[in-house]
Nucleic acid binder design. Structure first.
Lengths: 354, 354
DNA sequence: ATGAAAGCGCTAACAT
DNA sequence: ATGTTAGCGCTTTCAT
């Protein structure tokens, strides 16, 4: 089977090769018009022989959208987003679509460039975890297109949100620690430029205030949710007197840095310090005493978003109900949080996710 | 600033709005022809005002390639690939390109669909980690395009390879264990349908044969490099008598499963079992005694691939030298591998990467 | 420095 | 059931 340079042939070449019209070729290949089975076969054979590869750009010039779904994430090396990308890629494959991934690194300009590129490619849908400080132009580029905000929410973007009930998440974690008798509880989380940062901090605070207590403001560290910030925050927290007896984290990424910092101290978890993570990457269970954490189903979140993205494609934006779809988090008890050695549990209230 | 539905306007609309020719608009926006600075400004303003968004499909119909770089990975939730994707996304951003990620799940058909989609989108470059059993059509689709094989290599794909010197990697790991006096060393790795599986197994064997020894074939487990396989393999290995005193792993993914399985036994690492991993995700250092492992620079690998991808764009394929570019791995000693309690080290040879 | 006109590869009316 | 024709939005000669 002699074959020309793959991708150089067009439907016209195929048509000419067969002495037929190029629109017949188009229809046969697209399975649209009524083309005889026999001709269809010959066309497909010729296409293969000539190394025909469709040109999606040309195709998307007539119809509306391409077959691409765009996903803008702040950090793909964060297992949360890579898992989400995996699930979304599966959903796309189900639908014969392609996932196009863009990494913003939480830089609003880079984010805007990516969104622009998606719009230029006429993607059929966009899923985005907005950076803090979304640019005005980003918001405009997203107007009237099939877009959903994922995990985080930004006022400049007018679109549905699929996220975790973050207030509930940190509240459950904090309540658990309170129940174990801890009072000096540190919190390390994303800052308040992030919708998630605000909500998780609120959950932390509300667990205290429910019981008429207040967290020590010195024990609250807010910053970029990256390992480095976890490291420096723990150092700062541990240097204070009296030191905290427990820690609530607002991101799994921070845990990496926290554990690194702890490695250098002689402190033992949970003997000297209890802690509860956020999210549940594989290694949380593998880590020695096991990390107690707040878990939520990434798969469910992506499926929720994907189903809206895929059928919002055709219909107007007023299809699906509420603007915010929240997934309920859950406390996973492992070995990193135990009773405070200096205090007894105050009450025995059962721990449940809100 | 009244603005029409973003993305609905074309250069023609912009031209008409200004009473000029659309080709002038095209040139001004693309920064090509000699358009007066004043007109250029007015054009840009009008484009913004009308909500003009370029149509990359239409654009790619004239020139050759789009601004997209395709990356086909078997598993994005594997930190190795997600880190690689991150670095590649950065390199793309540097060049004003877009990363398009496709997940094959090691399914040759899905892989083929992805490659086809990339070709249809006329991506400027493709980076691929081939699945075992690459289809013939996949190989053809990749002929004569700017493609590089990443990590793995497949005979049906005719393209340069950027990979780890895997033979050296497992050889160093195995030698280290041998030096520590271990003789019953188990190996769990990818099977021989994978180029990496073959090479890593060969490294394991060669470290033995260098010393006139042979590994026990019963201690070699070959399968899919996923956590589940690590779990079942460890169970099998530990059930045998005499049980192995050490383990060499051929993938970081397997480590997740291995540790999970170990959790259920009373075995202590490194007291009862030494082990050495492959690759170095963040949590390897965080895990309790620290995981001794074989590391290599993902960043360097991606940079090597990216530089070839980006300048191979214009020139022919005969530009860059050798077909295979191997990155040298390195032993990172932490706490998971110690001297065998039943034997003394045989010699004191220093451990070095090849 | 700007405009006019010719396609790029494809799909979709509109003919037969 | 198949052919003809007219664009889609853009870039690029070729004029001016």
């Amino acid at each position: 089977m002699k074959m020309d340079q793959m991708g150089k042939a067009t439907i016209k070449d195929v048509a000419e090769h067969l002495g037929i019209s190029h629109s017949t070729v188009s229809r046969a290949l697209g399975g649209r018009g009524r083309i005889s089975a026999e001709l269809t076969e010959r066309i497909k054979a010729a296409a293969r022989e000539l190394g025909y590869v469709a040109h999606s750009g040309a195709r998307s010039m007539r119809g509306a959208h391409s077959t691409i779904v765009g996903f803008v994430v702040p950090d793909i090396s964060n297992t949360f987003y890579s898992k989400a990308a995996k699930v979304l890629a599966d959903r796309c494959a189900d639908q014969g679509h392609q996932l196009m991934l863009a990494v913003s690194e939480d830089d609003p300009h880079r984010e805007m460039r990516h969104v622009e590129a998606f719009r230029e490619a006429r993607t059929s849908a966009i899923l985005i975890t907005p950076a803090p400080g979304v640019l005005e132009r980003t918001g405009m580029l997203l107007e009237g297109v099939n877009v959903i905000q994922f995990v985080r929410e930004h006022p400049r973007i007018d679109a549905q949100v699929v996220c975790v009930d973050d207030v509930a998440g940190t509240a459950v974690a904090t309540r658990h620690l309170l129940d174990l008798g801890h009072r000096r509880i540190g919190y390390i989380g994303g800052d308040e430029t992030l919708s998630t940062g605000r909500a998780r901090l609120e959950g932390f605070r509300s667990a205290f205030s429910e019981r008429g207590l207040f967290p020590d403001p010195d024990l609250i560290c807010l910053g970029r949710p990256r390992p480095e910030f976890g490291t420096t925050s723990v150092a700062r927290l541990l240097a204070g007197r009296p030191a905290p007896t427990a820690l609530v984290l607002g991101s799994s990424n921070l845990m990496v840095g926290v554990i690194q910092a702890l490695h250098e101290t002689m402190l033992d978890v949970p003997r000297d310090l209890s802690m509860i993570g956020y999210g549940d990457p594989d290694w949380f269970a593998a880590w020695k005493p096991g990390l107690t954490t707040i878990d939520f189903s990434i798969e469910r979140m992506v499926n929720l978003a994907a189903s809206r993205l895929f059928d919002g494609r055709e219909t107007g934006s007023d299809t699906a109900g509420e603007r915010q779809i929240r997934v309920r988090p859950q406390l996973v008890i492992r070995g990193s949080a135990e009773a405070c050695r200096n205090a007894m549990p105050v009450d025995g209230r059962p721990v449940e996710a809100v």
